[in-house]
Design a protein around this nucleic acid. Structure first.
Lengths: 331, 331
DNA sequence: AAAACCACAGAGAACGTTTTCCCTACTAGG
DNA sequence: CCTAGTAGGGAAAACGTTCTCTGTGGTTTT
């Protein structure tokens, strides 16, 4: 049998209500407070959070649902979100959907049952569409992936502009055959693709977009198809994220291509190892901490101002130039 | 006001108890079952998990506490644990201690308050020591880091043997000046260090152990001190994990060392990018999925057999040879 | 000095479920 | 045909808290 608040009350010779008040930090006679605290320590009392949540009707819990925990970008964001949340006395329920819309729906339902205070969500493509229509009991803040017309608060980076920056960088280095690899299943992928497309147009060179699926086998097939024919091979690539970039590297390695001599690579996300591949890759670093911090803040804000208009925070990425980017290729 | 089980009961014209029974899948007249299910859909009822947990006295929740989520090894293990747990209808409370013993203690206390079914823990060094003495209300399974005499179930890899394998590999390639970089704060680090030391002894060459702190600044200083003096520089390194390896690469890069010509690297953990650095690094791949799966299974097992003797599962790592490992160095 | 007020402690309801207990109706066995 | 046994549904207690409401003693105000 576990020790409950009543046991503490008995030991301290006060009422359960008083124990509750002491623990909640409400005003109580110092003398009694001491007695209660002594009793708490003596009995080793630990409040039962389920009971507390049931009665008080607030769970102090937020949900964090990301689409792919293997993507270090999401790991990094999650880390910040959790650190900040725990710091504010919020518990975090963490979920990973693996880009599976059904799993995502299941988790959102779980959030309902948990009666969470709010949810931070990096949705799948389908999920992003669905969110627009569904009314949930808790506020949702979308991160990383959010259509501009989303009906939720969101914090994203300026994907189109950042993709354009990568194109501009490669163009400046002399590349003329620049292909773009973007995810088929995400809003983010589409936005980056658009930015890439427009930038290529502005440069006056034809773009070549390769849609890449999340599933690795498929991704590598698509990339191989792009790179294997030396005569039609692009001289440089804009890659949508670090996971995809690894597939590119694997294929390039298999084909015996040397980076950046045979193929210059640029990508979104900045991982430590990127410094050491192909003489250093130029990338767009996303402000992961700021994304996490902003998301939590927006969520808290939304709780205070439930009927405020939806807000969309667009953060800039940071362009990091490294290495030579390749010798360039005269188209 | 939220819809509760009583509302469903009223709509279905049955008692709350019957609704509960239907939802729990207990035998109920098919006719009533249909009425109840219809009412559930009609009302959009979602059970309140807090209430359920309070009354039923089981939370169906496990805690997962890891020391460093930035270490991809832990990310990978976490992913499996969560997938399996959710599959079995268990919720996971995920926590990251950042190698901070105080945070760890705080989270363990939180687990008590959540009344979790059990905990899977990758402890800090201090935590591993403390666990031995503390009696908790729930079973704990240690992963990755567990002293051989731990009083909990644990699943680890054979760190000493694996470290020895790396030494043997380097020795075979002709290296004679092989330094070892190991974490100061973890059981794992110590075990790998021991294995390294014994293997060096067997090879009849003197070992050189560099203790490396978790904090990156400190780590890089220690590594710089080891590598900057060309005359005393080892020709090869055994590195304890992928995070530490990144620090090594950064320092090597700063010093203008080429991998593996000037310095051969081997490490624990296998990340995709390791294929593409220095012509491919030879590493020990840890069976992350199996670790996760085993941990969950052991935890479930322990719940059924509370007084079974503590068990320690030791898994083998997989040695992956890549690249040349360097030209070797005549001591 | 009386009235009004305030601060704080205790009693008991309430939170939304599951579980226990009892009761009924039906089945089976003699 | 009667009794014992069984299956399943309803009423109400229980889970461990917090919250509301009431009461009391002391302080301020008029």
């Amino acid at each position: 049998m576990n020790v409950g608040i009543k046991d503490v009350a008995r030991v301290a010779a006060v009422s359960p209500a008083t124990v509750s008040r002491v623990l909640a930090g409400r005003p109580v006679d110092p003398d009694m407070r001491d007695r209660v605290m002594a009793a708490v320590h003596e009995t080793g009392y630990r409040p039962n959070l389920a009971a507390r949540r049931l009665r008080s009707r607030h769970t102090n819990t937020i949900g964090l649902i990301v689409a792919d925990i293997r993507n270090p970008f999401f790991t990094a964001v999650s880390r910040t979100v959790e650190a900040i949340a725990y710091d504010r006395g919020l518990r975090v329920i963490f979920c990973n959907t693996d880009e599976d819309a059904a799993k995502e729906a299941m988790y959102l339902q779980l959030m309902q049952e948990e009666r969470v205070t709010g949810v931070i969500l990096a949705p799948t493509r389908e999920g992003a569409d669905r969110i627009a229509h569904v009314e949930s009991d808790f506020p949702i803040v979308l991160i990383d992936r959010a259509a501009p017309n989303a009906s939720c608060d969101s914090v994203v980076i300026d994907n189109a502009a950042m993709a354009a920056k990568l194109v501009a960088h490669l163009h400046r280095l002399g590349h003329r055959r620049i292909a773009g690899l973007f995810g088929t299943d995400t809003v983010t992928g589409r936005e980056r693709c658009d930015g890439y497309g427009r930038a290529m147009e502005e440069c006056g060179i034809p773009g070549q977009v390769v849609p890449v699926a999340h599933e690795r086998e498929q991704a590598q097939r698509a990339i191989t198809a792009l790179l294997e024919d030396a005569s039609r091979r692009p001289s440089a690539l804009v890659v949508s994220n670090s996971v995809m970039l690894q597939s590119v590297l694997r294929v390039a390695d298999a084909l015996g291509l040397e980076i950046p001599r045979d193929l210059a690579l640029t990508s979104f996300d900045n991982e430590p190892w990127m410094e050491f591949v192909g003489g250093g890759l130029s990338v767009i670093e996303q402000p992961v901490e700021e994304i996490g911090r902003t998301a939590v803040t927006m969520l808290m804000d939304r709780l205070d101002h439930a009927d405020c208009v939806t807000r969309r925070v667009v953060l800039a990425g940071r362009f990091i130039a490294r290495g030579s980017g390749g010798r360039g290729a005269e188209a």
